[in-house]
Design a protein around this nucleic acid. Structure first.
Length: 446
RNA sequence: CGGGCUAUAGCGCAGUCUGGUAGCGCGUUCGUCUGGGGGACGAAAGGUCGUGAGUUCGAAUCUCGCUAGCCCGACCA
């Protein structure tokens, strides 16, 4: 993309409403604009990141064998009355009435809808196991939205639902989500720690929240410092291998890691004192096993091998996709702006032309831009008539992982400068070598 | 929902107490000089002062209502 033809309304000054760094930077970098309290428009740069996160979530869900679909944002109140949650949910649920005076609602979650779809189509245990998911906008009418997209009222979320014949099968689905979430967050360059959690209004027996450690986090967390050493890495995984998944689950849950809701001082005291950590975290995902909580009242049953109809065992699992954009910035920034992990960066390489209009510099930038695009490296070429300082500041703010700086001075010696956003280290290379270096270093992030 | 606060140009703010021609910085447009970390000089555009009523010869300024937004708390992915 040529910056001169893009829409990137960056701000030099910080809008006064933004209190935390991710909110400030998202506004300054022209990623979002507030439409009303807790509701945001996603401008091109922010939208690009959001789409990229969605893509990673889709890939990892489908790798685990889960099936994508799409349910509506507006739901009828009837199903919620059937499950008993229409009254239970409270004012957080946005209730709407249509022209026929029917009670509707903007869905805060989709257990009822998915259970209705399931019960009307699935009759036999032979069609199980089944895990369906979608990525859709949700609405929770928070009393006090804040922190930008981290605690908005409208938010984009991946929510998935598993249907299994037995509790054992459903717990395997739980583990499958547990492991696929570890992979998902790691691919985004995030360290998300699974912590034993409260089940809240969803209900159920088992639940883990995935938290990114950050000072601005809303949850207080307690953990054994060694949990942060665990890394999923490149290991190949067969999501049908129950023992393997159980092993990974057991490893990650072997050490103390809880939010304040489930924290237990007595148990925590057993952790060696030098490893006890108390910190704050941002919740970026949660998984639940809740058995027959919805299938029983809503009559979602299948016939088992013995011909008897039994309610299915279910679980639900969420990843806060829009919130992740904020969490990523909280975890990846410095005083100059955002420092995107390469895998989620909206643009992978920025090209800065130090002297727009200089024949050699223009030609070299065009060649680099074309070469980067050909290699699929999604370059952003700052071809504006701006001073060098303004271009550098802009690139730093929006957080391109790599920057190639091109100026007449370097070109006289046949070199351009390749700079790493995260470390600030620069090297002088020929334009061709710079292209190859970018391709090589970004290979894993594409 | 309880407590606190704000609303004046695209953004950040002053002006309000003490009523009298609506200002500053940044950004934007044009020109010149510039050109390796938000440059300089010159010119210009841009505002129903959130909104409705009231007081007054006269209201951004005083009074009352309304709306929107922000912060702290309780609540939450």
């Amino acid at each position: 993309m040529r910056l001169s033809r893009y829409f990137l309304p960056i701000l030099k000054e910080t809008p006064s409403e933004a209190q935390i760094v991710s909110h400030r930077l998202m506004l300054r970098a022209g990623m979002i604009r507030q439409a009303s309290a807790g509701i945001y428009s996603w401008l091109p740069l922010g939208f690009k990141v959001l789409r990229r996160l969605e893509q990673i979530v889709h890939e990892e869900q489908q790798r685990a064998g889960h099936i994508p679909m799409l349910m509506p944002t507006i739901q009828s109140a009837e199903l919620w009355q059937e499950s008993g949650r229409y009254n239970a949910y409270g004012p957080e649920m946005l209730r709407i009435r249509d022209r026929h005076d029917r009670d509707m609602l903007y869905g805060p979650t989709n257990e009822e809808l998915i259970t209705d779809i399931f019960r009307s189509s699935v009759r036999s245990y032979r069609e199980l196991p089944l895990t369906l998911y979608h990525i859709q906008w949700k609405f929770r009418d928070e009393i006090r939205p804040r922190f930008g997209v981290m605690r908005g009222r409208e938010f984009l979320m991946k929510d998935g639902y598993n249907f299994d014949l037995t509790k054992e099968d459903a717990l395997h689905a739980y583990n499958r989500h547990f492991v696929s979430y570890l992979r998902t967050y790691e691919r985004m360059g995030l360290k998300a720690i699974p912590m034993r959690a409260d089940t809240g209004p969803i209900g159920g027996d088992y639940s883990h929240e995935f938290l990114v450690l950050a000072d601005t986090g809303e949850s207080e967390v307690f953990y054994d410092s060694r949990v942060t050493d665990f890394e999923f890495g490149d290991r190949a995984i067969d999501f049908d291998d129950r023992a393997a998944l159980q092993g990974i689950y057991d490893q990650w849950t072997s050490l103390y890691a809880r939010t304040d809701e489930t924290h237990d001082d007595t148990v925590f005291a057993e952790v060696p004192e030098d490893r006890r950590r108390k910190a704050r975290g941002i919740e970026v995902g949660q998984i639940f096993y809740f058995g027959t909580k919805y299938s029983e009242p809503m009559g979602a049953k299948v016939q088992g091998p013995d011909g008897q109809a039994v309610p299915v065992h279910m679980g639900s699992h969420g990843i806060g996709v829009s919130r992740l954009v904020g969490a990523l910035i909280e975890a990846n920034h410095d005083e100059n702006g955002i420092v995107w992990p390469a895998s989620v960066a909206p643009f992978k390489v920025g090209v800065v032309n130090l002297k727009q209009g200089d024949t050699d510099a223009d030609a070299a930038c065009e060649a680099l831009y074309a070469g980067l695009a050909t290699r699929g490296l999604d370059p952003l070429y700052d071809d504006r008539e701006e001073r060098a300082g303004a271009k550098f500041a802009g690139m730093d703010l929006i957080g391109c992982p790599w920057r190639i700086t091109v100026g007449p001075r370097g070109l006289k010696n046949g070199v351009v400068e390749l700079t790493c956003r995260r470390t600030g280290e620069s090297e002088e290379l020929s334009p061709e070598a710079a292209l190859d270096a970018c391709a090589q270093r970004l290979a894993r992030a594409l």
